[in-house]
Design a protein around this nucleic acid. Structure first.
Length: 513
RNA sequence: GGCGCUAUCGUCUAGGGGUUAGGACGUGAGAUUCUCAAUCUUAAAACACGGGUUCGAUUCCCGUUAGCGCUACCA
């Protein structure tokens, strides 16, 4: 592998949201390109007019950028080289297949004139009959190639008669081989492939549309792709593509077929297994670096066999396509959650808070009207509670210690009732109330600690008998963050004018009724 | 049916002709803190099966089984 010459591509169809399987393919391509100083090309495979939508294409690009995966050539990519090329008038563009139709047409003409491809007039019914025959004999269901050697006269007659025809490639005798970085050498006998359709017959007077296997090959060759990294569902397509490379005399690239991602039931991962789109992971509050880290780990083992957490630059250093596993891997939400907790803990607080704000809905004012003081306060709130959640959409619920004070609910919550029924709890709360009412300013952790000490020495109650009822009065739960951290957050939040009752309010409302 | 790909703890993986088969997630136990979180310690947990080759195979070869993919004028 020579540096600088490597060219790889990610070629999604814009027929839906980017999901984890595709994202992993994109990531491996990106990693391989960055690792070797190569070029990553984004190509939109939108030949399927009915299912392709522009909004999916732009969403796709947004998701890739969110993951931190940029590309060097492709549609909509700003930057000197591409600004000029726009949506693909560059050396290697266009980067949308729908804009490359003339290119395919030209290639087809070349193949036809060189006799490497031929017109096939077989009807769907004829083909079907052929397949049935082969199947009944337990033979590979392939095309017999009967139009291959039609006499020139007969062919002309068919054309003149306006018979629809498809264009097929002539497959040679030699086995079709390719090298796969993940699986080693792979070889298919030519008989198992048979002459594949390159261009469909025209329908409703429209010109024939080239098929997928043909256009990817043409695009990959013309875009000078050196390494085709894609899902292993394409492995059986590869011999056909190799045949196309050979027909044109193009150099066959290296391949790397990535294994499938499975759900916990060992079936292909799909919506049935829960969230699979990148967008939905973002919405749930996963950090992109966690997702990327997990996707990299899924189906790949670091050389030392021990490292688990990687930043994107670290991955670029450590990643080796040759170490990617060939066997399918089950997507494990638990491990992803662990990695996300790890990312949450190492994420700069300000950035974390900024992402987290959106998950608090009505609990916080609109982000545009926020004061700087609120922001700083919120950063501390997030910092305190973030280690306790798997993903950010759970954060607001955790922060109910601060936001959601409901004395009635606190009193009757199952395990709370038991604690509060104790005599000691009543004594502690009465003591706390007198302290609180006598104190008019905001409560500081120091003062609060003094109160607790007072109560302790006055009543002899200590430990959990002391702390649990107090915590219930303050937060509605006997468990929660330390008073040292909790008290300032409550008092400052209240002072900031947020919908947060002060310590004094809480105790009053709790003991009062 | 045909062709192809795959097979190490529940999961992701490391390893490799002789190892106490290593790590991580998750799970169990313990420690710690005023915390349903975090952290630390610790335990249980695997080479699919059958034949070869070999002094020796989990590792190499061949089968079996299972899973998956392709088998389209889908992408």
């Amino acid at each position: 592998m020579e540096n600088g010459k490597i060219r790889v591509r990610f070629a999604p169809s814009p027929t839906g949201l980017l999901h984890v399987g595709n994202a992993r393919t994109a990531l491996y391509n990106w990693l391989f390109a960055r690792r070797h100083g190569g070029t990553l090309i984004l190509r939109i495979e939108d030949t399927d007019e009915e299912r392709s939508e522009e909004r999916y294409a732009s969403q796709l690009m947004r998701d890739l950028r969110w993951l931190g995966l940029n590309w060097d050539e492709g549609p909509g990519e700003p930057g000197a080289a591409n600004e000029e090329n726009g949506a693909g008038r560059g050396e290697h563009g266009p980067y949308r297949q729908s804009e490359r139709l003339e290119i395919y047409e030209k290639c087809t003409q070349q193949l036809l004139t060189e006799g490497k491809a031929y017109r096939c007039f077989c009807s769907a019914a004829e083909l079907e009959a052929e397949r049935k025959l082969y199947a009944s004999r337990n033979m590979p269901q392939v095309y017999s190639g009967r139009c291959r050697d039609l006499s020139g006269r007969l062919m002309q007659k068919n054309i003149d008669a306006g018979l629809p025809f498809a264009v097929r490639l002539k497959i040679g005798e030699e086995p079709l081989k390719f090298h796969d970085l993940v699986r080693g050498d792979v070889e298919f006998p030519a008989e198992a492939v048979s002459d594949p359709i390159l261009v469909r017959s025209r329908r409703h007077g429209k010109p024939g549309v080239p098929v997928y296997n043909y256009v990817v090959t043409v695009d990959d060759a013309l875009m000078e792709i050196t390494h085709v990294i894609r899902g292993d569902d394409h492995i059986s397509n590869t011999p056909k593509q190799v045949a196309i490379y050979r027909a044109f005399g193009w150099k066959v690239p290296e391949f790397a077929h990535l294994s499938t991602i499975l759900g916990s039931d060992r079936e292909r991962l799909s919506k049935r297994h829960g969230a699979t789109s990148i967008a939905s992971f973002r919405e749930m509050g996963y950090l992109p670096e966690a997702l990327v880290n997990y996707l990299a780990l899924l189906g790949w083992g670091a050389e030392d066999g021990k490292s688990e957490t990687f930043t994107l630059p670290e991955l670029v250093q450590a990643f080796e396509l040759e170490r990617v596993t060939a066997s399918p891997a089950v997507f494990d939400f638990d491990k992803l959650n662990w990695l996300n907790r790890h990312s949450l803990k190492s994420c700069p607080p300000a950035r974390l808070a900024s992402i987290a704000w959106g998950y608090f809905g009505g609990l916080l004012p609109d982000k545009s009207t926020v004061t700087n003081a609120m922001l700083i306060w919120f950063v501390r709130v997030v910092h305190l509670f973030a280690p306790a959640v798997d993903h950010l959409d759970q954060l607001a619920a955790k922060c109910l210690f601060i936001f959601g004070f409901d004395p009635d609910h606190a009193r009757h919550k199952d395990d709370n009732a038991l604690i509060l029924a104790e005599d000691s709890a009543r004594i502690v709360l009465a003591e706390l109330a007198t302290h609180t009412r006598a104190h008019l300013d905001a409560v500081t952790p120091e003062i609060f600690k003094m109160w607790l000490d007072d109560i302790k020495s006055a009543t002899g109650i200590h430990g959990k008998d002391l702390f649990h009822p107090v915590r219930i009065a303050l937060t509605g739960s006997h468990a929660g963050p330390e008073f040292d951290k909790l008290i300032p957050l409550i008092e400052e939040g209240a002072a900031l004018g947020l919908k947060i009752p002060s310590v004094r309010d809480r105790v009053d409302r709790f003991v009062g009724v």
